[in-house]
């Protein structure tokens, strides 16, 4: 890719990243949330790799890390749901944190935490799939 594309992609990537953070953290008061934000988050990395080529990130190393992050975030979601059994109304997925004012950023109890974890999970999954495809193509062309 030309220098122009690479530079624009770098600038754009940062903006997409910030917007993804916004969508994820406002999941409980706005349309969007963990899944949509996670897709954007993965997109900000994918744009970089597309513009800079495969050498930009050490892809194989990243794939190990993203699949670990994927497992870790699901594990945390499960444990957070499990913690509901010991607090508040004593049920799985119980929403026991203080609910706050509706419409505020810090409200809705546990739900923003689930949103953030789902965002990480979706981003990691999509990026893993993307990396698997690129690595496959790289190895197939050899």
């Amino acid at each position: 890719m030309s220098v122009i594309v690479q530079k624009v992609a770098q600038l754009l990537s940062a903006m997409i990243f910030v917007f993804a953070m916004y969508v994820i953290t406002h999941g409980h008061i706005m349309p969007g949330g963990g899944f949509a934000g996670g897709v954007l988050l993965a997109g900000s990395f994918i744009v970089l790799v597309l513009a800079q080529g495969q050498g930009y990130l050490k892809l194989k190393q990243q794939r190990e890390r993203t699949s670990l992050l994927e497992s870790l975030s699901v594990l945390l979601i499960l444990l957070l749901g499990f913690s509901g059994l010991f607090a508040g109304s004593m049920v799985f997925f119980g929403n026991y944190l203080p609910k706050g004012q509706p419409g505020e950023l810090l409200s809705a109890g546990n739900i923003p935490i689930y949103s953030i974890l789902i965002g990480i999970k979706v981003a990691a999954t999509l990026f893993t799939i993307f990396l698997a495809l690129t690595i496959y193509k790289e190895e197939a062309s050899k």
Binding site: S67, S71, L72, V74, L75, L78, G81, F82, F92
Partner: peptide, 11 residues
């Protein structure tokens, strides 16, 4: 819960 926990604990 248990099978999901095991599934993501193993990696």
């Amino acid at each position: 819960f248990l099978p999901f926990l095991a599934a993501f604990l193993i990696p």
